[in-house]
Design a protein around this nucleic acid. Structure first.
Length: 280
DNA sequence: TGAATTGTTCTACC
DNA sequence: TGGTAGAACAATTC
């Protein structure tokens, strides 16, 4: 379940291999994953940069952008030619293959150096091409690492919203990057019940929420994200943040603060983990 | 077999 | 109108 820290980990690992490569060929095994005419739009384009926008992976080309969303089970990683022979057998859900040629190279040099693979068990992930990112920037809220993400910004924003904390924090048009795992974690950290309307959260709680969001995401990135069910980066590598989780996936276990049993309930159609004592 | 899983989008409601 | 709640959707696993 890739959220901000997992996507950031993937982006950091892809960047060094992808930048200064040319996309020489596209093989699509599952057409529904990619936007129409993708091949003609990206072939022979050079990769300029690899960035993250919310949970989206942005691959900047000489002209336009390749935008990838991993959704639940998508994986985007590179392999060399030898590894690719193994990968073809190993990954049952390999859907898209990009051939990469390093540059600078002689203009007619066609040896493939690496391959960028998109593997997705559930097939919910998407890869699209677009000329600019305005549509995406318009629908995404503030990134938690944006300088504008402050306690006063949260206070002002939340004062206009009556909805419960859980769905608000999951809403990508408000804060971009949090998903089910980290929302449960930050709410536990701040001692906020996920059903609390956000306009009723006190200033001191907002301060805890703000530092919680930043600190938890920062640590999770440092630990290469959380591997709960399927997430991995660079093919097989898994995130280590799972051992730092305080509530997510810990139902029936003791709360680290007060010893009360963590419970799991459903809020806004999502599995939600709370300590009933610390998050009243 | 059907419930559970997710982020996003659509629809209905007040 | 616009904020909000809830359902639908995708595919697979157990």
């Amino acid at each position: 379940m890739p959220e901000l820290p997992e996507v950031e980990t993937v982006v950091r690992n892809l960047r060094s291999v992808l930048v200064n490569s040319k996309l020489s060929k596209l093989t699509v095994l599952k057409t529904k994953i990619v936007s129409p005419d993708l091949s003609s739009q990206i072939i022979n384009q050079e990769i300029i940069a690899v960035e993250r926008l919310g949970k989206y992976i942005i691959i900047q080309l000489s002209s336009g952008y390749l935008v990838v969303h991993l959704r639940m089970t998508g994986k985007l990683f590179t392999v060399n030619l030898t590894e690719f022979e193994l990968a073809k057998q190993k990954y049952k859900h390999l859907h898209v293959i990009f051939d990469l040629i390093s540059i600078p190279r002689a203009p007619n040099f066609n040896q493939v150096d690496n391959l960028l693979l998109f593997v997705d068990q559930r097939q919910f992930g998407r890869i699209i091409f677009c000329d600019n990112l305005a549509w995406l920037q318009a629908k995404l809220g503030l990134d938690p690492f944006d300088n504008k993400f402050t306690v006063s910004w949260l206070k002002n924003k939340f004062s206009q919203i009556k909805r419960a904390a859980k769905p608000v924090l999951l809403d990508q048009s408000i804060i971009a990057g949090l998903g089910n795992i980290y929302v449960d974690e930050v709410l536990w950290h701040a001692g906020i019940n996920p059903k609390r309307p956000v306009n009723q959260i006190s200033l001191s709680e907002l301060q805890k929420l703000h530092t919680g969001i930043k600190n938890i995401l920062e640590l999770a990135i440092a630990k290469n994200g959380t591997t709960f069910q399927s997430y991995s980066f660079m093919g097989e590598k898994t995130g280590e943040f799972i051992s730092y989780l305080k509530v997510f996936g810990r139902q029936d276990l003791a709360c680290y603060t007060c010893g009360t049993k963590i419970i799991k309930l459903k809020i806004a159609q999502r599995g939600t983990h709370i300590c009933p004592e610390c998050q009243k």
